Structure formats: C-alpha cells, structure tokens
Simulated scan of single mutants.
Amino acid sequence: MHSSADDIRKLLAAKTWAFVGLTDTPYRTVYQMAAFLQRNGVKIVPVNPRAEAVLGEEGHTSVPPGVDVVGIYRRSQFVGPHVDEAIEAGASGVWTPLDVVDEEAAGRAVDAGLTVVMDHCPKIEWPAYGPTA
C-alpha cells in the first residue's frame, strides 16, 4: 500500500519537511534526521508544543500550510492526529521513522492523496533514493 521505492524517492526529493516532535535535543533521532536533511538542502519546519525554534528555524505548535512532507517522530499511537494535520495543511506526504506504524492513519492519508512512507529512516534511504542518488 505504501513505502515503495518510488514513494521514498518522491518524499526524499521534497523541498520542505515539517518535523513533528522536533526540539533542540541533539541526541534525539528527530533532531538528527532534521539536521541531516537540512545539510542536504531541505528546509525544515520544527513542530513542537512550545513552538521552539530548532536548527535556526522558527518553530510551530502545529503543522503549518506550505510544507511538502510531514515527518511524524512520535510513537505509533500518536500518529493519527498528525496525519490529519498534514492532510489539513495540504502536505503531499507523511513519513514515520523506524518502528512507527499506524495503518489506519496511513489509509486516511492515501485516501486524501498523500504519499505515505512508514517505518523507514531518511538517512538510511538517502544513499539509494535521495535526489543525488
């Protein structure tokens, strides 16, 4: 249903990613993935409860309009509402990291026309599917 090579390639080529759960804590996976994509030319948009600025980018309390991909770095049981935010914001895709899966939310996203990649790591996929691959 999702996470095909074409889906991964499409999302990794996106220019703007909102990262749900991104705070200024360098040892967290979400920070490392946002920093990695930023170093590779992707504009990042931090989304966290305090609207904290991270990696030099203005923070938001919810997914703002104008982002291409919403990376949801929360546990599986919290993915659904953020997928709904991505749909409402007009994003073209959602991505969840390794071991984070919500098939019901993925179905809603696909039904709304979004590309879905779940249970994958952008940094792992980049060498094979990133824009420079």
Rank of each mutant, 00 (worst) to 15 (best):
D68R: 06
L11E: 00
A86R: 09
I72C: 04
G93N: 06
R28L: 14
V100I: 15
A109S: 12
Y73S: 13
R50H: 12
I72T: 02
R75S: 11
D111W: 06
V94I: 15
N40A: 10
I87T: 02
N48H: 13
S62F: 05
G90T: 09
R50C: 02
L98V: 09
D119T: 02
E85Q: 15
Q38H: 10
N40F: 10
S4F: 01
G80E: 12
F19D: 04
Q38L: 14
E57N: 04
P46S: 11
A53F: 05
S3M: 07
P65Y: 05
G56N: 07
A112G: 04
L55V: 04
T23I: 15
L11H: 07
A34N: 10
V45K: 09
R74S: 04
T115D: 00
V83I: 11
T132G: 05
V30P: 12
S4M: 07
F36T: 09
D99C: 03
E52N: 07
G107T: 01
H2K: 09
M33D: 13
A5P: 07
L98N: 10
D119Y: 00
T25L: 12
S62W: 03
L37Y: 01
R50A: 14
D102K: 01
T61I: 11
G107K: 15
V42P: 10
V70W: 03
T61D: 06
A105S: 14
E88V: 01
E57R: 11
H2N: 14
A91M: 08
